[in-house]
Amino acid sequence: MKWLDKITETRARKVAQSTSRRGFLGKLATVVVGTTAAVPLLPVARAEQSGGQQPAEEGDPNSCDYWRFCAIDGFLCGCCGGSINTCPPGTEMSPITWIGTCENPVDGRNYIISYNDCCGKTSCGNCLCQRNEGDRPMYRPQLSNDLNWCLGTQSVAYNCSTAVVIGTALDE
């Protein structure tokens, strides 16, 4: 798959630099394969395409050991007036972010989790959580939780982080 990594990465970088900031997400492709025809490619199998019922989840979504938080670093939005996939009132969700690949213990699948930051207010201060499975240095920013991802938002002030399921990671 190295050749695919290379092509996807090169293409994604050009997209990220020359077009939309969302294009940056297209760079992630080490364990997943693109399935949509849209540009930029978002190389995940979308949940709605799989049909059927959503798999169940277990655990406390406001606890740092919850499965979706395997690569998070920040305040959990569910403890800040938002939820695991929504921002607190009056904040703005960053359109670009870093991602993690986390295993849902209920169905044993690996999911791509997008840790979109909520922005425009100062730190929430509740439920600080840091886990680093799959986290990588800032020269691979799409996998780095050391960055303040309040980018492309009206304000760079960081409030909290969500953990949105954006698809399943397919086996290599």
Binding site: G120, K121, T122, Q154, S155, V156, A157
Partner: peptide, 12 residues
């Protein structure tokens, strides 16, 4: 460092 004209919002 970075300053916003209204603290957490405004011109950067």
């Amino acid at each position: 460092d970075t300053y916003l004209s209204r603290g957490t919002r405004g011109e950067r």
